[in-house]
Simulated scan of single mutants.
Amino acid sequence: MAPLEPAELPADAIEVGRIADAWGIKGWFKVLPYSADPQALFSSKRWFLQPAEKGARTFEGTCRLAIKEAREHADSVVASAHDIPDRSAAEALRGARVFVPRSSFPSADSDEYYWVDLIGLDVVNREGVALGQVRDLLSTGPQTVLVIEYADEDKTLERMIPFVSAFVDKVELPERRITVDWQPDY
C-alpha cells in the first residue's frame, strides 16, 4: 500500500465513525457510523483518518482519504477511496477513526439539530434561571434526552430533560443557549 497522504485535522473536524474491516477484494472498506443516519459520511469526499491507538502499523498521525464512493450497507457504510487499491490496503485501515469537517455536513431542517451542535450549550428556563450546560444526549427510542451538567455546592450533578417541544421552547445556536419549560427542582 502506498503511504496515505498526511494531513492536518480540520479545526471543525467531527469524529463520525470507525473503519471496521475490508469489504470485498477491490479495496472497499466497511465503516461503522456513530449515527443512525450517516449522511455526514456521504456529504464529504474528504475523510480524515487517525489510528485507533498509538503505534498503529499502517499509518501514524492524521491522513486524508479521497473518497470515490460511499453507500449504506445493512447497518454500516461501505466505501472506496482513490488511495486504497485492494483488500490488503483496506485491511490496513482496520480500526481507524473517521473524521469529516463539520462544514461539510448537510444542512439540518429548521427544527432539526446535530447533536454535536447542542453539546456545550447553556440551558435556561423561561424565567432565565440557569439549569446547566448540555454535556451529552441520549436516545431513549421514542425521544432524545438532554443530559445537563450543573454545579451544586462543591458537587457536579446532572439532570435530564426530554428534548421534545413540550419542554424545549427555543434553541439558539448563535447565542449558544437552549430555553426550556423546566424548573431547577424537577
Rank of each mutant, 00 (worst) to 15 (best):
T179V: 15
C63M: 04
P101M: 10
D86Y: 10
A13W: 10
P51N: 12
F48G: 14
Q39K: 13
E60H: 10
E5A: 14
G120H: 05
S104I: 07
P6S: 11
R18C: 12
S88K: 09
E149D: 10
V180I: 08
L65D: 04
F42A: 05
A92M: 14
L157Y: 15
C63E: 04
R102K: 03
V98H: 09
A108W: 08
P51I: 13
D111G: 05
F163V: 06
A20M: 15
V164R: 15
P106L: 05
T62H: 06
E158L: 07
A11P: 08
D122T: 12
A89K: 06
S76R: 08
I84E: 06
E175G: 01
V16S: 08
K30R: 07
M1K: 03
A151E: 13
V100I: 13
L138R: 05
F99H: 00
G141E: 02
D109S: 11
Y113G: 04
S103L: 03
H73M: 10
L121H: 00
L118Q: 05
F99S: 00
P85S: 03
S103F: 07
G128S: 07
I67Q: 01
L137R: 00
I67W: 00
A74H: 14
V147I: 10
R94Q: 12
E149T: 14
V78W: 14
P174R: 08
I161Y: 10
A52W: 00
V168N: 02
A96C: 15
L9S: 03
V98L: 14
Y113K: 02
E53H: 04
A90V: 11
V78M: 13
G24D: 11
P38W: 08
K155D: 14
L41F: 12
W115V: 10
V134T: 01
F59M: 06
A108Y: 04
T140R: 03
E175R: 07
V31S: 07
E15T: 04
E158K: 08
A40H: 03
I25H: 01
A13K: 04
R97L: 15
V171G: 02
V168D: 02
E72I: 14
V100L: 12
I67C: 02
L49S: 15
P51W: 02
F48N: 13
S104E: 11
F59I: 01
D154N: 01
E91V: 12
L4Q: 03
K68T: 09
E127I: 06
A151I: 15
A92V: 13
Q183C: 11
F59N: 02
V145A: 00
R57P: 14
Y150L: 03
D122S: 11
S88H: 05
G132D: 09
G61V: 01
P142W: 05
P162D: 13
Q133G: 03
D181L: 09
L138S: 04
S139N: 12
K30G: 08
F167L: 10
Q39R: 12
E69Y: 00
V98P: 09
I148H: 03
L138V: 00
